[in-house]
Design a protein around this nucleic acid. Structure first.
Lengths: 192, 192
DNA sequence: CTCGTCGATGACACGGCATGTCATCAACGG
DNA sequence: CCGTTGATGACATGCCGTGTCATCGACGAG
């Protein structure tokens, strides 16, 4: 069993299987590693803690930062956000609506996973902010654009998962984006 | 020592003192309770976990929800946000800039506190969303307004703490709000 | 083919976190 | 004066997460 391939994958599969059978909180790390044929200590070599096996490390922040930095330089930030979110929606969520919903249900059912989920959003914002700064945005506006992108994404994901009929997530994103706008300083503030 | 008054307050003070002396991670719950003259078990009767002693329970979400529900009904949501944030800034942050900065530094220095901090923001959003729904907003727009309020507040707090000279936090908030706007559906989306 | 290196895993110990359970004690009302 | 009630102490327990060192397989050098 030692040196069997894909230790990380085996741990992930064993974990998700057990979480589905018993729930997240009721599943212990020794249970996961026993099913994967590894020791408890090895689990913590692949995942910083039990929560991390649910989330994909820093894959999502990395992907978002890459997409932002690869966007055409002449695009306005809000259009960069649109571009990135459409790409993410099409490649990572369309066609996986039910799995995604189950994933969100599991997170929302456990307090410690809700903590980590919120933290992951903050990490995404931080990565996106850096990417906007690299595009030449000032610190403050980069932060606001990054936060706004995360806001739209989160609201759109929740809404998309709650819809009765499956449709491309990009449609939901487009609807949400008609509600939210971000302006540069010379724009007129609303509601003053 | 048993039945001495204000057990919760003693625990909070002992905790903050020790966190200041040794740092958060290096301080154990038994250390805190020993200084407060209580037992470890009692700590967990007042705080759900070691992190919670840093944050004020659900006091902030409750205060925000109350302020939103007490705002004049004729106000636009963005003006409700302005009203609430100005009130919070004036009563809870102005004059406590250095303490607040130290508090934020402690949170940012520890991973588990960053998790919880992000979660607290999500809790605030949830409470504000409910309050906006009670004002008659639709679920989706209530969510967006609540998220936007939290966004403005977080960005403004960071910016305010980073400023070289102390000034009313409301000034910083006003600046941030000139950058961000939220429109109802009939408004024109920007950047399309 | 053999050996030495190197990275991955096992084995073990350990402290802290968090919770369940029951006993104990002070306050308070009758 | 006593019984009730709520807060606290005392104790046991299980899991989480980490440090440390031994061990094993893969792989390249000779």
């Amino acid at each position: 069993m030692r040196w069997a391939p894909d230790a990380r994958g085996r741990l992930e599969r064993a974990a998700f299987d057990l979480f589905g059978e018993q729930g997240y909180a009721a599943t212990t790390v020794p249970q996961i590693t026993a099913r994967a044929g590894l020791t408890t200590r090895t689990f913590f070599r692949y995942f910083a803690d039990k929560r991390e096996v649910i989330f994909g490390g820093d894959e999502i922040p990395r992907a978002a930062a890459r997409l932002i930095s690869e966007a055409p330089p002449e695009l306005e930030p809000i259009d960069v956000i649109r571009l990135v979110l459409d790409e993410v929606a099409a490649t990572r969520f369309d066609g996986r609506r039910e799995e995604t919903a189950a994933w969100r249900r599991m997170i929302n059912a456990d307090d410690s996973l809700r903590d980590r989920d919120a933290r992951k959003r903050a990490d995404l914002v931080a990565a996106a902010r850096t990417a906007f700064v690299d595009r030449g945005e000032a610190q403050r506006s980069a932060t606001i654009f990054a936060e706004t992108g995360a806001l739209i994404f989160h609201v759109a994901l929740d809404a998309w998962l709650a819809e009765p009929e499956a449709r491309p997530m990009g449609d939901t994103i487009a609807e949400i984006m008609t509600w939210v706008c971000v302006r540069r300083l010379e724009g007129t503030p609303l509601g003053s």
